[in-house]
Design a protein around this nucleic acid. Structure first.
Lengths: 338, 338
DNA sequence: TATCAACACGAAACCGTTTTCGTAACAATT
DNA sequence: AATTGTTACGAAAACGGTTTCGTGTTGATA
């Protein structure tokens, strides 16, 4: 048990002042070669490392960035974290992860906790409850304090900040186009309620693609789940009385679930019914049959968000100039479509 | 843009001393009701929140715990984080996540970075490279500094600290027992090289179960992959020339992969060949057929690790008393076995 | 009336750095 | 010999809190 050595310890031991030690370790011109050599050697010998907390307090910079996500078990979010980590670490930043668990209250608590000096900036994706409540005061407060913020994926126009999203509408459009071009006519959409920004955009893309191909919208072909939870009965009911030949799902889980259901009913994928999901994760890759999927490029999204944030953190100008980066989704074709 | 208000600001505004403000906000007995009311009202009005960094510096406590994991996209680890987060947040701690990405160097860098005051304690799982190199100096240094450490899942006897693991040997034993009891004879094991502590234990359980049921070990039925990467050709080769009727895989991915392969070869699961995997994640649940799996209870593991750590962090005694919690794995039976 | 708690508050040290500014010692210049 | 300029270092303030201790003002007590 050897406690950390401090500047003061070195100063006492070498009979110089604390400031001399500090400067010597920074290789300051002010200090003579001899003294620097002596101090640096001593510091290395005792493995001196400056205390991050003290440095943070002094510099008013923590080199930490706070990430608030709705759910960490969801594959998409982990890929985003992965991207954030990668970029942030390369720039010497640590990543503080907080999970809101789709809860408004936890989102507020986490933000307030981190906002009190623990981090230099936020990267976040809204919890579903927050999007439902439309209460963004906790976020506004943070931005008003001048803490840089980047939102990704689940964003809102009500907050002025940098954003990075994929073109969800375009993603859905691509998927439906794919269906239509392979001869499908009765194309279903399985989605969540509209309050989730991304679901809304995807529904728009779905409608647009139908319209632009001269297919009229049949509202009975849209299944809206109240949350991201899979509701067995709703699926059961929807797929037993509808005659559909293609299904677009707003996430992997819905898609896998639906595929399983129709396969048990004896239908063949993709001959009888095709599937496309959002979020190109492990589930899509390993499903049987593997699932054609709209890749959201989470890792790139994370890197981009981290890049935008760190830029804002390190720049000192006061002018508020925000931008939104829109990533293009890509369709990963697999066995569930032909 | 309104910068944060500090004690000093309040003191100046209300014409009292900083110490009075500090005490008043902590509801100290020393301060009169009147003054406290006035100060507390003012603080609430201006939404005063103490600066975490300053408090940390003073108290030498950050209320942060550092988590270092090999990989964040791996479902098991995210469930562990989830558990850690849950317990830690309830106790008022933040979680700093760093990903070593299975690299020794990144593990070292991350630990050194966090050890300099950013966190009160570590929770970690070894990177595969570290287990391969058997170089634990960076970890020893941290423990020697008196920073509490809890290791989970991928641990080593070389470090004296609290640990939480599942009984991997028992997990494998259960799986093989299940195979044997349902009449399987030629039971394969798909694993990674032995340097991964968990793989080793699982192989032990596999051998033990065979032995205790009077089946002799056939080394040709063991496929050892050099890493966690799926090597297509190795799988292909292994499954084309071996006659196996059951396969135990040390993770989900291997299992899903193998299942797909044998299904393409026209075999039926579980009639012709049964499968069991480790890590009871989404993939197991949604595979076709769904995969019988040994649940590692990641969330519980995370909660337990956080609990052990925070206990150590908050206790002040010097005595070093370490314990290892062994969680019992459970077999989640699904369609891939009968 | 002198003494003494109790009360209510402030001064100052402290956590471990960084950084500005002041200055002693010496050399170089006129 | 007086002035100026370097060089090499130290003192001290600052970051934003917490906490110990000291003290002026009361009212009660002997």
């Amino acid at each position: 048990m050897k406690p950390k050595i401090t500047l003061k310890d070195i100063a006492r031991e070498l009979e110089v002042s604390i400031s001399t030690v500090s400067k010597a370790l920074k290789n300051s011109e002010e200090i003579s070669r001899d003294t620097k050599d002596k101090i640096q050697a001593f510091a290395k010998l005792y493995n001196y490392k400056p205390n991050n907390i003290a440095v943070s307090l002094k510099n008013r910079r923590t080199k930490n960035i706070g990430v608030i996500i709705p759910d960490i078990v969801h594959h998409f979010f982990t890929t985003v974290i992965s991207g954030i980590e990668k970029y942030a670490n390369a720039k010497g930043y640590n990543v503080l992860v907080c999970v809101s668990n789709e809860s408004f209250d936890r989102e507020v608590i986490n933000m307030e906790l981190l906002a009190n000096g623990s981090i230099d900036g936020f990267i976040m994706s809204l919890s579903s409850e927050t999007q439902l409540k439309k209460d963004y005061n906790h976020i506004k407060e943070v931005t008003q304090q001048g803490i840089p913020l980047v939102m990704f994926d689940r964003v809102t126009p009500e907050i002025a900040c940098d954003k990075v999203v994929i073109d969800d509408e375009q993603g859905a459009f691509l998927a439906v186009k794919k269906f239509i071009e392979s001869g499908k006519k009765r194309i279903a959409l399985v989605t969540t309620d509209d309050y989730l920004s991304v679901s809304k955009a995807r529904a728009m893309g779905y409608e647009k693609a139908l319209k632009s191909h001269g297919i009229s919208l049949d509202p009975s072909l849209i299944l809206k789940l109240p949350s991201m939870e899979v509701e067995e009965e709703a699926f059961e009911a929807f797929f037993s009385d509808k005659k559909v030949d293609a299904v677009l799902c707003v996430n992997e889980i819905f898609a896998i679930h639906a595929m399983r259901l129709v396969q048990l009913k004896g239908k063949r994928i993709p001959e009888d019914i095709s599937f496309i999901g959002f979020t190109d994760g492990l589930l899509s890759k390993y499903a049987m049959p593997s699932l054609t999927s709209i890749a959201q490029h989470g890792e790139i999204m994370g890197e981009e968000a981290a890049k935008m944030l760190i830029e804002k953190v390190e720049i000192e100008t006061e002018e508020e100039q925000f931008s939104t980066t829109v990533l293009q989704p890509t369709l990963m074709e697999r066995e569930s479509t032909k």
